[in-house]
């Protein structure tokens, strides 16, 4: 397996199949937490962290527990439990060891359980089935690369969108479009721009 495979996976997860604009995962934080630049950065870091750890755990659980025992159909329940308990655990861990980090990330952590990007990326990695084309560890590395790319793409769009939204608030928008409607139209135009990256790889 060469470096090019990883690079392709990273670029494709980050730019071409962007989680927010192309795959519609994580729209709730995208619309809800993007009013301020700082909060969008905090949310992005929290999501990136949980996404990577969740991908690691769900991958291992799927291929060492669910698949050998032929109970793949339980994966929705297993994955959501992993994610929910992981979020709880991360919250407790950060609270104990880093007060500063807890202050900046803490409020976003409970929201992440119901962030579809986490479950969507974990589930997506299983559906792509890296394990059959590479070995267990190769598949794990590719899944993590995919999750990292998705997290970077999420952060990129959150940051860009919150910066646009701050400016948008200062503009004279027609009153029917104020707030969410104009944000959605802006997101549509961003999505159109990202559609242009489709031919990159």
């Amino acid at each position: 397996m060469s470096v090019a495979v990883f690079f392709t996976a990273l670029a494709s997860a980050m730019l071409i199949n962007n989680v927010i604009l192309m795959r519609f995962l994580g729209i709730c934080p995208f619309l809800g937490v993007s009013k301020k630049i700082e909060s969008s950065i905090g949310m992005s870091f929290a999501v990136a962290f949980v996404m990577l750890v969740a991908t690691l755990f769900t991958y291992i659980i799927y291929y060492t527990l669910l698949e050998p025992f032929d109970i793949e159909y339980l994966r929705i329940i297993a994955f959501i439990l992993v994610i929910a308990s992981l979020v709880q655990f991360v919250e407790m861990f950060i609270k104990k060891f880093s007060k500063g980090l807890y202050k900046s990330l803490g409020i976003y952590l409970p929201l992440i359980t119901t962030n579809c990007a986490i479950l969507g990326v974990a589930e997506g990695n299983i559906i792509i089935d890296f394990n059959s084309s590479y070995n267990f560890f190769g598949g794990l590395a590719l899944s993590l690369t995919n999750a990292l790319g998705a997290a970077l793409g999420f952060g990129l769009i959150m940051f860009a969108f919150s910066a646009i939204r701050v400016r948008l608030d200062a503009q004279n928008v027609p009153k029917e479009y104020k707030g969410v409607p104009i944000s959605l139209v802006v997101a549509g135009i961003m999505s159109l721009a990202f559609f242009g990256l489709q031919g990159l790889i």
Partner: peptide, 17 residues
């Protein structure tokens, strides 16, 4: 396309308003 989804929902919400 995905872009159309965002734009349609934006316009529909504005119409509701």
């Amino acid at each position: 396309l995905p872009a159309g989804a965002f734009i349609t929902l934006g316009f529909l919400l504005a119409m509701k308003n």
